[in-house]
């Protein structure tokens, strides 16, 4: 009885502790309404009271379940081939089809079947903000559709675009940009 009570209290402390919002500096900016007269201080309030916002804890999924399988997933992930794209295009190039075939076989293997697949679209640095993220998503969708055509279940795959935010090469040259225009895979438990 005593043990259960202790466990209950501990769990409650964890829950409430985990959900507590981080403190945020509160400072209401005052508006300047009075006409400024000679030698009277004009208070400039722009930027006063701006606080840093921290995402609430508890929104990020616990990784404990993933940790059990992470080693196995990393091995399979490292075997997967990246799919590369032409400048400003999201159709799969002829020379990339064998990579798609390879990935389809890889993800169909018995040791890979238990995992979900996140198909991640990436771009070079030359698109502009929104368009680049959409282009990355369309690349991921092209690869997803090609994998479905090769027998991978559609529901196993989720898609995300990282736009230009996830470069594998940060130099500013054509070879580097070609490496960044890619789709790659992350396995999920």
């Amino acid at each position: 009885m005593r043990n259960s009570l202790m466990i209950g209290l501990f769990a409650a402390a964890l829950i409430f502790g985990g959900c507590a919002k981080k403190s945020v500096e509160l400072e209401t900016p005052t508006e300047q309404t009075q006409q400024v007269e000679e030698e009277q201080a004009t208070t400039v309030t722009e930027g006063e009271g701006i606080s840093e916002v921290s995402p609430e804890s508890g929104t990020i999924e616990s990784l404990s379940e993933q940790e059990k399988k992470i080693q196995k997933m990393k091995v399979i992930e490292s075997e997967a081939k990246k799919i590369y794209f032409d400048f400003d295009k999201y159709n799969i190039r002829a020379d990339q089809v064998e990579n798609v075939d390879f990935d389809a076989k890889l993800f169909s293997r018995d040791d890979a079947k238990e995992f979900k697949i996140r198909v991640e679209g990436n771009c070079d640095e030359w698109g502009t903000d929104e368009y680049n993220y959409a282009l990355g998503l369309k690349r991921a969708k092209s690869v997803r559709d090609a994998l479905v055509a090769r027998g991978i279940e559609k529901d196993r795959m989720t898609l995300i675009s990282y736009g230009e935010s996830n470069p594998v090469c940060t130099e500013h040259n054509k070879e580097c940009w070609q490496k960044n225009r890619r789709v790659e895979f992350t396995l999920l438990p």
């Binding site: 000679e38 030698e39 009277q40 201080a41 004009t42 208070t43 400039v44 722009e46 930027g47």
Partner: peptide
């Protein structure tokens, strides 16, 4: 033309003084 005193409570925000 005018003589005024401007005030800001955080030195890092000095650009807003200049803009005002």
């Amino acid at each position: 033309a005018f003589q005024k005193t401007y005030k800001i409570n955080d030195i890092k925000r000095y650009p807003f003084l200049a803009h005002k």
